[in-house]
Design a protein around this nucleic acid. Structure first.
Length: 267
DNA sequence: ATGACTCCCAGTGGGAGA
């Protein structure tokens, strides 16, 4: 089973790239962020024609998330229960016994700003909601655009960006608070090339210079962690014409039902 | 260097992103 996350920065613009990417990478589940579409404009027919079921939760102009899957989904949630959030940032569903949460964490703009305070409060709410959801669904994956570079090695120039948005101690502490629920950063379960990023600024030839940050993450619960066999960032779509500024991140889970069972009949 | 690019809604500019 493969699951992936991608901030597409406008699905209206990027739909052809998403369909091309799925044709080349037929993952079981894909969560999208920054669809930037109201629900009535969501291109579900095109996605369904590509062989995916889809759930979406959007709004005009900003934010917006979606959950694409090859197989049937149950227990769909849009937004976080208990948080009255006008911004469409969370979508969740259960696939083949795996709980999948797609999230678009607020950007926060600048430390000390109102938007930064919203980001911190939003992350507190996510942690509280997640603790409950995790108790209900132990086999859980939280993935999306976290807008947080968890460590210095996730930043192309840690000294330049120290204390700046995406890199502050406050944001990193909130990221660790999520992992302390028992969630592991799947990317760091494996040896990775140094200077691996998931986002590059559109400005300054940042992609060509590989000046980026790793802010898109896949966190896996303790119960699922033994099943994780790989995690990688796919930089190829960032080389497209009119690319998103983010690249997809993919995690591979071993199918436990395919493992030999002691109680299974054998010939 | 309060920049740079891209997207959106707007309406020949400005907010937001990260």
């Amino acid at each position: 089973m493969q699951l992936a996350t991608w901030n597409v920065n406008s699905l209206a613009v990027r739909l052809p790239q998403v369909l091309d990417w799925l044709a080349a990478n037929p993952v079981d589940v894909l969560v999208l962020q920054e669809t930037k579409l109201s629900d009535d404009k969501f291109p579900h027919a095109e996605i369904e024609a590509a062989g995916y079921g889809v759930q979406w939760h959007g709004q005009k102009t900003y934010n917006g998330v979606a959950l694409l899957s090859r197989n049937a989904v149950t227990a769909v949630n849009k937004g976080m229960a208990g948080l009255d959030d006008a911004q469409a940032r969370v979508i969740a569903g259960t696939f083949a016994g795996v709980r999948v949460i797609g999230a678009y964490v607020p950007n926060g703009q600048a430390p000390g700003s109102d938007k930064f305070a919203y980001k911190m409060a939003w992350l507190d709410a996510l942690r509280a909601w997640l603790a409950k959801d995790l108790a209900e669904h132990p086999r859980l994956v939280l993935m999306g655009d976290f807008n947080i570079a968890p460590e210095d090695r996730d930043v192309y120039d840690p000294e330049l960006l120290r204390g700046q948005i995406l890199c502050t101690d406050d944001e990193r502490a909130h990221f660790r608070a999520l992992t302390q629920l028992g969630l592991a950063d799947a990317f760091r379960l494996f040896e990775q090339p140094p200077k691996s990023w998931s986002w590059w600024d559109y400005r300054n030839l940042a992609f060509r210079r590989n000046q980026g940050l790793r802010i898109d993450h896949i966190l896996v619960s303790e119960a699922l962690r033994p099943c994780v066999t790989a995690c990688a960032i796919d930089k190829l779509p960032r080389k497209n014409e009119r690319p998103s500024d983010h690249a997809p991140v993919i995690v591979t889970l071993r199918d436990e039902s395919a493992q030999p069972q002691a109680s299974s009949p054998s010939s």
